[in-house]
């Protein structure tokens, strides 16, 4: 056991520490302690991973079992009723497919708008100098702190007055004015913006809009990608907006499916219900499987707080 640590240690430590270790000729007691602590750390991490994954796994297993099986007791092994459950879901007329495409439409459009106009707004704070700029910037910072609940009732009334009730416009257009995204891009600009490039483009006779669209936007690619993922996910997960503003079932968004699942019509067929919930999670699981590294890096630099 102690041999093991000896082999492990040089890999795991920095050079200066290796020298120190070699000098001290680490006593056996310390090495045993090191192994013990490492084991405890791994056990903690694995336990937490189980806490994070077990509910999802139980849900998936339930989705593959028949209702009678689910009532009999918990299981960690999938059964073979996945197809049966799926067929009964189709029988129930769950609007999964249309809701999926509705959500895709809303989240992609709103994110595209949000990205373009947030970068444009942030750009105006780094590329130009005008009177009152600092005041306007602090106003944007204050807007970030205002809770959305305050405007909820007024927003609903406004949408009804404008005749936009039960349409997607009120879910897409407000994305243009997202103070959080502006703040994110301003920070990115502060670290990466080169005024020389813009001035070179200006001397070459490029108009300001053209410069922004063709010269500045491409340099933002990494930040755009990070923000796009978070924008799409947060728009996808938005529940309160559609709940207030969408009334016809064929216009339901994906998160609203969950609310249908809880109604009596489905709640007797536990297997189909579990499958429906799992299906509402599935697209995000796939997205996460593809982009998890990217997403975690985004969270680490503070892009995930919205």
């Amino acid at each position: 056991m102690s041999n093991d640590t000896n082999v492990m240690a040089p890999e795991a430590l920095t050079e200066s520490q290796i020298h120190k270790l070699a000098k001290k000729q680490v006593p056996l007691k310390k090495r045993v302690k090191h192994t013990a602590v490492t084991t405890v750390i791994y056990i903690c991490c694995v336990l937490m991973a189980i806490v994070c994954l077990l509910p999802l796994w139980l849900l998936f297993v339930d989705a593959t079992r028949a209702t009678t099986q689910i009532n009999q007791g918990m299981s960690l092994v999938p059964s073979r009723y996945l197809i049966t459950n799926f067929n009964s879901l189709i029988e129930y007329d769950m609007p999964l497919v249309s809701a999926f495409f509705n959500s895709v439409l809303i989240s992609f459009c709103s994110t595209a708008l949000s990205l373009y106009f947030s970068t444009l707004t942030a750009y105006s704070f780094v590329a130009y100098r005008y009177k009152g700029q600092k005041v306007i910037w602090s106003i944007i910072l204050i807007l970030m702190m205002i809770p959305g609940q305050l405007s909820m009732i007024g927003f609903y009334k406004l949408v009804v007055d404008l005749g936009m009730y039960d349409t997607y416009w009120p879910l897409i257009i407000p994305a243009i004015a997202g103070p959080g995204a502006v703040f994110f891009f301003k920070q990115y600009f502060d670290a990466n913006f080169s005024k020389e490039m813009v001035e070179a483009a200006r001397i070459d006779g490029s108009s300001e809009f053209r410069t922004f669209n063709l010269v500045v936007l491409p340099t933002l690619a990494p930040a755009l990608a990070t923000n796009a993922i978070f924008g799409i996910v947060s728009s996808w997960n938005n529940y309160m907006g559609p709940l207030m503003l969408i009334s016809s079932t064929e216009k339901y968004t994906f998160p609203m499916i969950s609310q249908l699942i809880k109604t009596d019509r489905y709640s007797t067929d536990l297997g189909a219900m579990a499958l429906a919930v799992f299906l509402t999670i599935l697209p995000l699981l796939i997205v996460y499987a593809c982009f998890s590294r990217f997403i975690i890096r985004g969270v680490a630099i503070g892009g995930g707080k919205e």
Partner: peptide
Amino acid sequence: IYYLPNILTATSVAVMFYT
């Protein structure tokens, strides 16, 4: 693994835990 739950739709998560 630890970050995964954060990305899931809150409504689906609520119904999942409900069941």
